[in-house]
């Protein structure tokens, strides 16, 4: 779990696809009378990220990000949990669908590349341009 990948948001239009394919790979009915094809490579990125979170590099990056912050601009204070729970409960059926529906597409696409190359060479890292090229295939 980390906020680090959030900086890598690239706004790619296909991010939803990766979110869905993750479910296709990781959820769904498993029937023990059938075999499943090998999915080597999927775990690799999960481990990557967990290691990064607790690293010195991460700490230094946080410290530098804090140094750059304009504290005078004031925090984005939240409304607080109880208020919002009340609001949502009372007003559940009205209003339009809105909100910041975006996310860390880059990270997800990295995960996906790691999935796809799993069978060939799961340890190899992709360069951005190569990954991009493959994406358009």
């Amino acid at each position: 779990m980390s906020v680090v990948p959030a900086q890598q948001t690239s706004g790619g239009g296909t991010s939803g696809l990766y979110d869905v394919l993750e479910l296709v790979l990781d959820r769904g009915l498993v029937i023990d009378a059938f075999v499943r094809v090998s999915l080597v490579g999927i775990e690799i990125l999960k481990i990557d990220v967990r290691v990064v979170v607790a690293s010195v590099d991460t700490y230094l990056r946080f410290a530098e990000a804090c140094n750059r912050l304009d504290l005078e601009a004031g925090p984005h204070r939240s409304a607080g949990l109880p208020d919002l729970v009340g609001e949502v409960t009372e007003d559940g059926a009205r209003g339009k669908v809105k909100g910041a529906l975006s996310g860390a597409a880059q990270t997800v696409s990295d995960a996906f590349h790691s999935v796809r190359e799993g069978g060939e060479d799961s340890g190899r890292r992709r360069t951005a341009s190569r990954a991009k090229k493959e994406e358009s295939e």
Binding site: A6, L84, E87, G99, A100
Partner: peptide, 15 residues
């Protein structure tokens, strides 16, 4: 709708 409202109320969250 609730997700939309959460995103509006909590600007530090991207949903």
């Amino acid at each position: 709708n609730a997700v939309g409202r959460l995103g509006k109320a909590y600007t530090h969250l991207e949903l």
